[in-house]
Amino acid sequence: MALEAHLQQAALLKKVAESMKDLCKDVNFDCSEKGIEVQCMDSSHVALVSLLLRESAFSEFKCDRPVSLGMNIDSLSKILKMTGANDSLKIRHQTDADTVNFQCEGSDDRIADFDLKLMTIESEHMEIPEQHYKVVAKLPSAEFQKVCRDLKEFGETIQIQGTKEGLKFMVQGDLGSGNVMLKPREGEKPEEKVSLTVHEPVTATFALRYLVNFSKAEKLCGSVELGLGPDAPLLVKYDLESSDKGHMQFYLAPKIDE
């Protein structure tokens, strides 16, 4: 067995697949002793998705040698739809086999089993250098989703401005122009807080529809981290429930500024 991974909650992988499927179609799941990693770009190469599912997210994880499993995200989602809220999931792959096996088990002793055919996917791997963002913001992920959804009604392009005062989302369109300003605030739970670190004010412009897509990953974690730099891709980062299980990172290339 080249790979054997047990996940206590199949729901985690289900959420991961759900939040990727608007951006990517066919992706390689790179498995190693570290865990499972995915990197892929949307078809226009404007956005990049980077997933790390650490071995510690699994109740059991064994990977004898690194292997890449090419899957269609929609097919994976279909399989994971069979799983119930509290089902556990086993992922297994035999060395050199052309399928990967998913087995989910519910508390009611129902066992669903599916062999998914693997695909060969040629993909480029991007080297992501360590980024030193001038603005780092943490906010409730539901709030981020609401801002994106609200503003997309008014325009296709969003400007994000990070200053000491707060994080401002601005949009211009045929109807007029508007903005939403989030100021830093305390909260009892981490997912209610808005925190902001500003080394230098930054303003950058992005295609809003991508942010709407990213923000659907809201189910993964109560809070989301945004990283902004001058002339750098925007980082939108969700922990997978908690940071020790891994993270889902989205990068979005900014538009050329005048």
Binding site: M41, S68, T120, E124, H125, E127, A253, K255
Partner: peptide, 19 residues
Amino acid sequence: SSRRIESFFQASPKRRRME
């Protein structure tokens, strides 16, 4: 005014992952 991710991150050579 759209730009690509490749303008910021470098691609490493294509990897063939499986037979």
